[in-house]
Amino acid sequence: MLQYLIIQLDNTSTSFCHYSNTKNRPLLITLDNLKNGILFAMKENLMVQYVLPDYELPAEYIEAMESIDNTKIASYQSVYANNADIVVLNGWNKEYLFDKDDVYVLRVDKKELFGKCSEIKEKIKMCRRLNIVITDVETFTDVDFELYRSVLKEFSIALEDSFAADFVAQLNVLTDRMMLDKMNNCNAGCDSITLAPDGRFYVCPAFYYENEYNIGSLVDGLDIKNPQLYRLEYAPICRHCDAYQCKRCIWLNRKTTFEVNTPSHEQCVVSHLERNASRELMMSVRERVEFLSDKEEIKDISYLDPFDLRDEWL
């Protein structure tokens, strides 16, 4: 069921996920479209998430935006960074100043992640939550998988110490899986849709930036074709999977396998490396202190890509 409407206010609004923002020239959503988008959200009972540009918006936009309860996403460089609920860090910079109460999204490519692992590790404990988004996950090779395994190990050490010291830092790739009992994915096209600056609806911002198909407009209404394909039950690999923290990125699926419901090998392996690292971390912490006692232990499994088990399902 739809729950969220993401409103991409400007072409230059930051990416907060795997896709790159390919549009460099500002194009602000019209005030009418913004108001109609808010009206749509109100009528459909949707939570609004604004993705803000770096520059200052006209006062009438701010006024309209505040007419509905909302969440704000802005880049670290944005004039709205201080008021944002989620601050996006595009690339790593050790000079970043973190606020202990804030949530950050760190968008890094694998080279930066592997190279700056120890610097990033130090910042995990300095914020309420850090979401790491690897922007080139689809290019991972077997060597990268091993490097990522090591990075997760490093992060685990930092987290284990903080847990033992009774400070529950959150790092999406390691702590989410421990808390979850079922899939908690991005769910674009199912739980959320995006309103782009052109007044059209898209599955997520990536579909707008990558010139993929739209799913209706404010004028013609929402029209999601084959809506079942965005749901977990219609994802032939994911519905068997227990890497509950996986983003299950619909756009990466579309890009790498041509199907919105089928993840790539790389996405599956990366998510399983995270799952297994979460398992080990959980066990290590439990050896030291009582920890998440209401949660079951994560099972030991022999595969990294559930696709390899397909003969058991068919």
């Binding site: 041509f258 399902w313 068919l314």
Partner: peptide, 26 residues
């Protein structure tokens, strides 16, 4: 066209995954 690779770069196995997990009911 649904291209899954070519003679120069080989087969992109990701492009085959949807076919290999497809079942009747889905």
């Amino acid at each position: 066209a649904w291209m899954i690779g070519n003679i120069y770069d080989g087969i992109d196995k990701n492009k085959l995954r949807p076919f290999l997990v497809l079942d009747r009911c889905i």
